[in-house]
Structure formats: C-alpha cells, structure tokens
C-alpha cells in the first residue's frame, strides 16, 4: 500500500535521507530502528507532509496515489495518519472537539455524512475506556497540561477513533513508564488487522517486546542498511547499532 522509492530529503540544506526505499503491505507491521540522527523521524514527517522538508529525489505512493502531490489533510483523509513524538498543545480546544472535527473531515472526504452525535459518543467512550483513560479527559484542551504518558495515549486514542489505513507512530514509546507503555502497546496491537499497515519508528527495542513487528529495518545515515524480522530487533538490543553501521560501511 505504501511504496517509498529512493527517497532523498534535505532539511535546511543538509541531506537527511539519502535514497530510502521501503514497501509496506496491508496487514504488516514495520519497525524502523536506528541510532539518533539517522533520519527516522524525518521519514514519517515527510510522509505526513510536514513543512521544511525538501524532497530532492525519489517517490512516495500510497495505494497508487502520489503522496507528495497531496495536501497534508488529503493524506490523512486518504488514511495516512501520524502519531506524534511530541504532540502540541492547543489551548481552549477540547479534545473531544478535535476528535469530532477530524473524524467528520475524514468522513466527508469519503463521501459519508457527519457522524450522528449518539454514535460518536458511544464510539469515543468505548475507545477512551480501552485506553484506560478517564472521560473527563475528553473535556480538557488538546494536550494542554497532559503528562507525557497522557499525550501518547491521546495519540493512540485518535488512531482508534480515526481508523487509518496506515498508522505511523513516531517514537511512541519515548518518555513512557512500563505501565503506560503496555497500555499504548495494547492500543497499537488492537489496530493490527489484515487491511491495515503499521509503521513504528523507535530507538529502543523495548517497545517491540509488546508490539512484535513483521519487519524490522535499520536506518543508518539516511538509508536502510539492514532488514529482517523481529529477531533483528532483539539482536540490536543485545549488540547495539555499531555492528550494523560497520557492516554497512564495509
């Protein structure tokens, strides 16, 4: 469903991605790992359409559509959704309001009508309780005063409500204690289905104990230098990244 071919991306004049190629099929969970500064977050940001990233070469297609030609909101409406490492605060805007606006924008793009209020409330309450969150959370302003764990749960909650075709999660495990990580992982696992792809970006293997990926890719210096299955992640955990870096340089 997602095809990234020979992607080159420049940020403020320096090349971060240097020919990245990646293919994700429905039903697959991919994990991108790599040392700091390898360009992991850049990949998901470019796919989502964040400003300030210049694609100098290569292509990204999603279900046959040229992603780079699409507006940010069109990408989300097409089913590409990014969970942020550092979600921003939006003072005065209630969580529930953002969720409803986002859901309705996506429904509208699909030619469906607005979701009826009772149906929406039912859906939301179910997902909130699944994420072990309190209902009062919906009435708070988006991410305002949220703890790190609450912010991450909120990102997953949005995924559960919006049901993307491809969920991209950028360092969703950073700053989480073990209990919060379990809840987040459970949320992500519940998203697994044969028609959905999941792309995890993570620095640590720890998360992958809870969300077992089908494919693991090691990103070093803007390129995927090694791919494998979940065993590769475990190997990285015990041996670190240096050996892969050396192997790729050789």
């Amino acid at each position: 469903m997602l095809e990234v071919k020979d992607l080159h991306v420049t940020v403020e004049g320096s090349e971060i991605l240097k020919g990245l190629t990646l293919s994700i099929q429905p039903g697959e969970v991919h994990a991108i790992m790599g040392p700091n500064g390898a360009g992991k977050s850049t990949l998901s940001a470019v796919i989502a359409g964040k400003d300030g990233y210049e694609v100098t070469a290569g292509t990204i297609t999603f279900e046959g559509r040229d992603v780079l030609e699409m507006e940010i909101e069109e990408r989300a409406q097409a089913g590409l959704l990014l969970g942020f490492q550092y979600p921003v605060e939006i003072p005065g805007v209630k969580n529930i309001y953002l969720l409803k606006a986002a859901l309705n924008a996506q429904r509208e793009a699909r030619g469906e009508g607005e979701i009826p209020a009772p149906e929406f409330m039912k859906l939301i309450k179910e997902k909130v309780s699944f994420m072990k969150m309190d209902n009062s959370f919906l009435q708070r302003a988006v991410n305002e005063g949220f703890s790190g764990g609450e912010k991450k749960r909120n990102e997953i909650l949005q995924m559960l409500v919006l049901q993307p075709k491809l969920a991209m999660l950028d360092e969703i495990d950073s700053g989480l204690d073990i209990d919060a990580m379990k809840v987040v992982a459970e949320g992500v696992n519940s998203l697994r289905s044969e028609d959905r792809g999941i792309l995890l970006v993570t620095h640590y293997q720890r998360l992958l104990d809870y969300i077992v990926p089908d494919h693991v890719h090691v990103l070093v210096d803007g390129r995927i230098v090694k791919s494998g299955n979940a065993d590769l992640a475990r190997e990285l955990e015990s041996r670190g990244y240096d050996w892969v870096v050396e192997e790729s340089a050789a």
């Binding site: 989502a48 359409g49 964040k50 400003d51 507006e71 940010i72 909101e73 990408r75 989300a76 409406q77 959704l81 990014l82 942020f84 979600p87 921003v88 939006i90 805007v93 309001y97 953002l98 606006a101 986002a102 924008a105 996506q106 793009a109 949005q158 919006l162």
Partner: peptide, 17 residues
C-alpha cells in the same frame, strides 16, 4: 500541522485554534 495531519483543512484548523 497537527490539526491538518488529522485530516482537518488549514482553514478549519485556523478557526479551531
């Protein structure tokens, strides 16, 4: 960007904020 990446148009996002 946060709002837009949820599928909300830029104009609606500005209004919301």
């Amino acid at each position: 960007f946060y709002c837009q990446s949820r599928g909300i148009s830029e104009e609606d996002a500005v209004n919301m904020i």
